[in-house]
Design a protein around this nucleic acid. Structure first.
Length: 567
RNA sequence: GCGCUCAUAGCUCAGCUGGAUAGAGUGUUUGGCUACGAACCAAAAGGUCGCAGGUUCGAGUCCUGCUGGGCGCACCA
């Protein structure tokens, strides 16, 4: 990845330019021979003994130049030192260069550069953490999109935490991200839903009807019917069966969608768009997509059904788009839906799906290719399952059996902050075992409190500080203790961490970063006292911790987690 | 059977897309509140990165095979 336009990124970029110039110069002087500079990395080494920044340029150039890495490093070191002595561009902050290990170039910057970083950070204020990495590209994140026939469960909670945080992170990194919920309000499921409701309705009114075999057993449906009967009695009984089912389904759907919206809102998630599958059928978009695919000769007729020939984009077998009864499949609607997304101008579309849908990924991307889109523009984040345990026993999670822990229960039992952090701190591809009893007992151990505690601690120090100290600029170059420098380094990495999390679509990186920063702060707290006699030093330290608090607060906010001033 | 995915400390997990001596939390052991919040800090101990090959200056990370867990392979969504 190339350097971002950030506090650290600018410094890395300067070192990169310097190295590139030195490479070319050696080429001109005939000391090195290459046609192209290989892609090398400028990074902050893990070990501080390896300097402030390190570059592997000599190693990656070894092959191209047909020279030993350390020979190249020696040439580069020499050129860099000459450039520094001549005060050429990009050398202003460089103090020293060393060759280390297999051929790393380790750079030490002049003392005080970290203070300068902190001053830049403070100057950026609330904007620190943001970057232009995304260059304003439009990205859509579609997540949860649970069937509106049931309640939201733990898997949905995980998707919500990841999707919402990802959208926040993308926005902070300079993308224009939109959140979308796809409402599956059409098709087979809804038919069954109507049948289930109708059975409950008629039975409640004294006309026992057997409950459909694969109907919905959600505990909330009888209550919903009870409300309807209490309000409107038996007026729907007289209607034709199909019409009554549709009415009951529509009635229940609108209530359930409201419930879902409220549950997600309660979890800190607000969508930009709620997109109805039904509109795709009613507008003719589904038929339109089938016609287009037919025109471009992607379709097959067999057994009275219409198939998409997925073999042409590398899949094993064709897939049905229109059943032999004339009803389009979910796949057909989904193709039309994604076509619609791209028509709305998104550069990239990210879907967050459960791991059970992985077989659908390549087909869907292939279908986009068939429509003439670059398949890379559809990205799918596959989330592994949340397995539900109770007292050490695995529970079977299913909407149909009605046995699950709902999102609302989760928020109620462990709290929104703990719940969101619990999900967003793990990478999407780890399988999670969740035990509600354990979660309740252990919610106080949730790492989120570690970060929140650091924030609250800072707030109380700032509250105890003499008035006005933070409103005048401080001399941050006074911060030269180990704990202070480490803290500034960590702080400075924030925008790059956000950018990396955005580009890799991995919000858990940000959670890890915040915990690291909090740890670094707690360590600093043990080493350095803020409210000291020396006014200049006190001011510098207060500015430092103020910046830390800001980063923790904004970082947590991206994860949908609050940063209380007291706990 | 075919495919996707995961395997890292006793347990739960990171590991910056191939870099230098693999890191946190938790648990165990030990030390630290008469200074800004002990929901904290410091230290010790804990590893054949599932196994076997391969690619190269260099592999937890990439490729192949194997073992084991999860999930798919519908005219369901």
């Amino acid at each position: 990845m190339l350097e971002q336009n950030t506090v650290l990124g600018q410094r890395k970029a300067a070192i990169r330019r310097l190295i590139e110039n030195c490479l070319y110069q050696n080429q001109r002087e005939g000391k090195l021979s290459f046609t192209e500079i290989a892609d090398f990395v400028v990074e902050q080494p893990r070990e501080e003994a390896h300097g402030d920044f390190a570059a592997n340029a000599a190693m990656v150039m070894a092959k191209v130049c047909r020279r030993a890495p350390r020979d190249i490093a020696a040439l580069l070191k020499d050129s860099i030192e000459k450039a520094c002595a001549a005060q050429e561009a990009d050398t202003a902050e460089i103090q020293q260069v060393e060759i280390a290990g297999p051929g790393f170039l380790n750079f030490w910057l002049k003392p005080g550069w970290l203070g300068a970083c902190l001053e830049e950070i403070l100057a950026q204020g609330e904007n620190f953490g943001r970057s232009n990495t995304g260059q304003g590209k439009k990205i859509q994140v579609e997540f949860v999109s649970a069937n509106p026939t049931g309640e939201l469960h733990m898997g949905n909670a995980r998707g919500a935490a990841i999707g919402d945080s990802l959208a926040n992170i993308l926005n902070a990194a300079g993308f224009q991200a939109e959140r979308e919920f796809y409402i599956n309000d059409a098709g087979n499921q809804i038919e069954k839903f109507g049948l289930s409701l109708d059975a409950l309705y008629q039975t409640r009114l004294g006309h026992p009807v057997p409950f459909p075999e694969d109907g919905y057993h959600g505990a909330d449906l009888p209550r919903l019917i009870e409300d309807l009967v209490a309000r409107e009695g038996d007026i729907y009984l007289k209607l034709p069966d199909q019409e009554r089912r549709n009415l009951l389904a529509d009635y229940a759907l609108s209530l359930k969608i409201t419930d879902i919206r409220n549950a997600l809102r309660n979890f800190g998630v607000e969508y930009d768009v709620w997109f109805s599958e039904r509109t795709l059928h009613e507008s003719g978009a589904v038929q339109g997509i089938i016609d287009k695919l037919d025109q471009d000769d992607w379709l097959l007729q067999q057994d009275g059904a219409i198939w998409l020939d997925c073999r042409r984009f590398g899949e094993e077998k064709p897939e049905v788009l229109v059943r032999n009864n004339g009803v389009p499949t979910y796949f057909a609607a989904d193709i039309a839906y994604h076509d619609n997304k791209f028509r709305r101008g998104f550069d990239t579309v990210i879907d967050i799906w459960g791991a059970d849908h992985h077989g659908h990924v390549a087909r869907m991307q292939g279908a986009m290719e068939a429509l003439g889109y670059d398949r890379q523009r559809l990205e799918v984040i596959l989330m592994q399952f949340v397995r539900l345990y109770q007292g050490g026993q695995l529970l079977k999670m299913s909407k149909r059996t009605g046995q699950y822990v709902t999102l609302n229960e989760l928020v109620e039992e462990v709290g929104r902050d703990a719940a969101r952090f619990f999900f967003v701190m793990r990478s999407a591809d780890s399988l999670i075992d969740f035990d509600m009893d354990l979660a309740k007992k252990q919610s106080a151990d949730n790492p989120v409190y570690y970060a929140q505690y650091a924030h609250a601690r800072i707030c109380s120090i700032l509250a105890a500080a003499p008035a006005g100290v933070c409103s005048v600029a401080a001399d941050c170059s006074l911060l030269r203790q180990e704990g202070e420098e480490k803290l500034i380094r960590k702080l400075a990495a924030f925008p790059d961490e956000v950018a990396t999390a955005a580009l890799s679509r991995e919000p858990h990186r940000l959670a890890m970063y915040i915990l690291d920063l909090a740890a670094q702060f707690h360590n600093f707290y043990g080493q350095c006292h803020c409210l000291v006699e020396d006014q200049a030093l006190m001011s510098a330290r207060l500015h430092l911790i103020q910046a830390v608090a800001g980063v923790i607060r904004r970082g947590l906010a991206m994860l949908g987690v609050s940063a209380p001033e007291k706990m």
